[in-house]
Design a protein around this nucleic acid. Structure first.
Length: 389
DNA sequence: AATAAAAACAACCGCAGGGAG
DNA sequence: GCTCCCTGCGGTTGTTTTTAT
């Protein structure tokens, strides 16, 4: 401590930005780009430090920011990614187009954390509190955590019949290499420009004989803000895919994983297995069929594995973009193609609490198209199992 | 309508890492 | 190898808005 901030040293303005300052910064960067941030305030005529300008641009002025409340899919994705990446907000943000790390961090700290706690899930470990407590009973030091546990205990009475969700951390806890691999892969992906964000909902076949998860059809897209679409040829062998993708078993990220080889690659830690079928994080609670596996090859959708059961319901009407390049990045930037639209099949939650209703179907084309693909739209529910208002 | 509490949002701060000299 | 500068990240705090009483 004892160190002055740059703003203090230079007697620069601090605090909230005025519209005039915003305008100056916006004009300057639009015209010249930011170049060296430290020189931006001077050139733009601002009494701010470069750091402050950078932050303002990234978090507020950037034209490609999405703004507005987070969709349920975005929240789900954040939780999934957090389970794998931890507090690496920038990397989580990289998977959410138009969202900033700051925004996601705020959402996590102010909202998601609380929801998880109310549901009896430790937001740090993504495990049920009962499990965390038994391992580390002294960790809950502050009163809010203790209250959370108490609340969670109440809530748990209501959902006692539901098994605890399987968690990414269960599978990944010893897979630091896998995490690193994922990070590298996603970073590499992010470097690829001129692309559009998209997700697809490929079908999976899990072969219990070979312990391989296989893609039965459809191109696969790796989700990333700047990512060139991973247009994976269905004929591409899963083992090939696994060299590109990490050992992730997240519902999103498992898209193209050869489970066996990727697990081997990571650390040799095998995912939990339920009656021959590996359990995936946040699998639908209370669905006994998800643990039954009579045949040697069963669709994950059939078993109700994925946390977004609508995917299962729609397994034959998956999003299929015959030519993803038809949708321009610029259209996305102008709000025409928010990723949540693609994902906006109403998700059924893993946990369960009220959330705000939000519609991201502000586009005419794909949104309507996608709606048409969902003839039996269900009442939306969130990750936490409560119907949206 | 006034006030307090909670939630959401915005910004700051310190540190770490990388590149240049 | 050292120092300086710049950038980016994550934790934290401050401010504003919303909700409850």
């Amino acid at each position: 401590m004892g160190r002055h901030s740059c703003c203090h040293k230079q007697k620069l303005r601090k605090g909230l930005w005025s519209p005039e300052e915003d305008e100056k910064l916006l004009k300057h960067i639009t015209k010249y780009g930011h170049g060296c941030w430290s020189s931006v305030p001077k050139l733009a005529g601002l009494q701010r430090c470069g750091k402050s300008c950078r932050l303002r641009w990234i978090n507020y002025l950037r034209p490609d920011l999405k703004r507005g409340t987070f969709s349920q899919q975005e929240e789900n994705l954040i939780i999934e990614l957090h389970a794998v990446l931890g507090n690496r907000w920038s990397q989580i943000a990289a998977q959410l187009p138009g969202r900033t790390d700051n925004e996601i961090k705020n959402l996590w700290n102010s909202c998601i954390k609380k929801k998880l706690r109310q549901r009896g899930i430790d937001p740090t470990t993504h495990k049920p509190f009962s499990e965390v407590e038994s391992v580390e009973p002294n960790k809950l030091s502050n009163s809010s955590d203790k209250n959370s546990v108490l609340n969670a205990a109440d809530n748990s009475k209501q959902v006692a019949s539901q098994p605890a969700p399987m968690l990414v951390s269960d599978i990944e806890k010893n897979s630091s290499k896998a995490k690193e691999f994922f990070i590298d892969a996603s970073n590499a992906c992010a470097r690829s420009a001129n692309s559009m964000p998209c997700f697809s909902l490929p079908q999976f076949q899990y072969n219990t004989a070979t312990a391989n998860l296989q893609v039965s059809s459809n191109p696969l897209f790796w989700p990333n803000q700047n990512c060139k679409v991973f247009d994976m040829n269905p004929e591409l062998s899963c083992s090939t895919i696994s060299t590109v993708t990490p050992s992730l078993s997240s519902t999103i990220l498992l898209n193209s994983i050869d489970l066996k080889s990727s697990v081997d690659m990571a650390s040799g830690c095998l995912p939990p297995v339920c009656a021959g079928v590996p359990s995936f994080p946040y699998m639908e609670a209370g669905n006994p069929s998800s643990c039954s596996s009579g045949s040697s090859s069963s669709s994950m959708f059939d078993t109700g594995f994925l946390p977004w059961p609508e995917m299962a319901a729609e397994k034959d009407t998956q999003i299929h973009l015959s030519d993803p390049e038809d949708l321009k990045w610029s259209e996305y930037l102008h709000g025409a193609f928010p990723v949540s639209s693609v994902l906006n099949c109403q998700s059924q939650p893993l946990y369960g609490t009220d959330v705000k209703v939000e519609s991201h179907f502000d586009m005419d084309g794909l949104g309507l198209w996608h709606q048409n693909q969902q003839p039996q739209q269900q009442q939306p529910t969130d990750l936490y199992g409560v119907m949206k208002r």
